[in-house]
């Protein structure tokens, strides 16, 4: 049987497009809603009943996340009571201190200081990202904001905080989070601070 070049082209295109489309439709989980997980140790900022619910997957060592943190701050102050933000850890393996930063942030959360520590980690990112070892620096930062040093040390050396970080990472992987910062705004995915700002402003009718 002689198949013309044109027919073969159509078959080839159909097979490739069909294969990828079937995967996207049936296996990808991009449309799965992201629940806002209110935890005892306050990793939720803003009013939990706010109409705009943002879940952020960030990495403390990622420069784009530090930039996006400024966008989140701006949105929270521009639209008070209308946005809630929940933090999820997603330290990328190529950032050598990111996992440790998340562990320290979890331990800061245990003492009710998650958000101040979260913000100071981003603001001081340029200082600690090139350090060989970060534990002492993080401890000094934490103590300077009133966190109990002994409790912090016990926490960061336990497996519990790390396992909480890993749980967030597993959730992120299940939601196909691949790069940071990834945001879910009322369940819809956005990557990067600029797109977050655009979506929030669209929802709240400012643009």
């Amino acid at each position: 049987m002689k198949v013309s070049r044109q027919v073969l082209t159509i078959v080839l295109v159909a097979v490739v497009v069909g294969g990828f489309s079937v995967y996207k439709l049936f296996l990808a989980r991009t449309l799965r809603p992201v629940p806002v997980d209110i935890r005892a140790f306050g990793r939720l900022k803003g009013d939990p009943s706010a109409p705009v619910k943002v879940v952020e997957y960030t990495d403390f060592q990622c420069p784009a996340c530090a930039h996006a943190n400024g966008v989140v701050e701006k949105l929270l102050s521009t639209y008070p009571g209308q946005i809630s933000v929940e933090h999820k850890h997603f330290p990328l393996s190529r950032h050598e201190h990111a996992f440790r930063a998340s562990v320290f942030a979890e331990c800061a959360a245990d003492q009710g200081k998650f958000w101040p520590f979260h913000d100071v980690l981003f603001k001081s990112q340029d200082t600690w990202e090139k350090m060989l070892s970060v534990d002492n620096y993080y401890s000094e930062l934490a103590v300077s904001m009133g966190i109990n040093g002994a409790r912090l040390t016990a926490c960061v050396n336990s497996a519990d905080a790390g396992s909480r970080v890993k749980k967030d990472m597993q959730e992120g992987v299940a939601l196909e989070v691949k790069s940071t910062p990834t945001f879910f705004v009322n369940g819809k995915r956005f990557v990067g601070g600029a797109f977050l700002e655009q979506e929030v402003e669209r929802i709240l009718g400012k643009k």
């Binding site: 990828f20 990808a28 991009t30 196909e176 691949k178 995915r189 956005f190 990557v191 990067g192 797109f195």
Partner: peptide, 13 residues
């Protein structure tokens, strides 16, 4: 293609 489009959109941006 197998990743969410938003990731590549962010790269382009």
């Amino acid at each position: 293609l197998l990743s969410p489009t938003e990731n590549f959109l962010y790269v382009i941006d």
